[in-house]
């Protein structure tokens, strides 16, 4: 029997798109919404939905501001989010190691 147990993975992070968001924010934070959208190849609505889930979990913070009189939405990776991201990677690493 495989020792691979996927239930140990943080579900908030482990959606394909949310995974991409967290990965990108780990090196670019805050990232403008449009930049993030292009990087993870999502639509406005889809990205907003997934960001809401991450925001509810406290992993990201959304800041709405203006730049040169144009609205600008910035997505910040929170301290809690960075911690969750590191935990997630550690968990994945141990799961993969256990399954080998």
């Amino acid at each position: 029997m495989s020792r691979f147990d996927h239930t140990a993975i943080d579900d908030v992070i482990h959606g394909r798109l949310r995974l991409g968001v967290m990965a990108y924010l780990s090196t670019v934070s805050p990232a403008p919404f449009v930049e993030l959208k292009a990087k993870v190849n999502a639509t406005d609505g889809n990205l907003s939905t997934h960001l809401s889930k991450l925001e509810e979990a406290g992993y990201v913070r959304i800041e709405k501001t203006f730049q040169a009189k144009k609205p600008l939405t910035l997505v910040h990776l929170t301290k809690q989010g960075r911690g969750a991201w590191i935990d997630y990677l550690n968990r994945l690493q141990s799961l993969i190691s256990a399954a080998e």
Binding site: F4, H6, I9, H14, R16, L19, G20, M22, A23, Y24, S26, T27, V28, K39, V40, L92, L95, I96, A99
Partner: peptide, 21 residues
């Protein structure tokens, strides 16, 4: 979820993180 799917997801995350890096 299989190990291969997980590795594929990890590769995707790594690509995005490296784009920022």
């Amino acid at each position: 979820m299989t190990r291969e799917e997980l590795l594929d997801d990890l590769a995707y995350a790594r690509t995005l993180a490296e784009e920022g890096r």
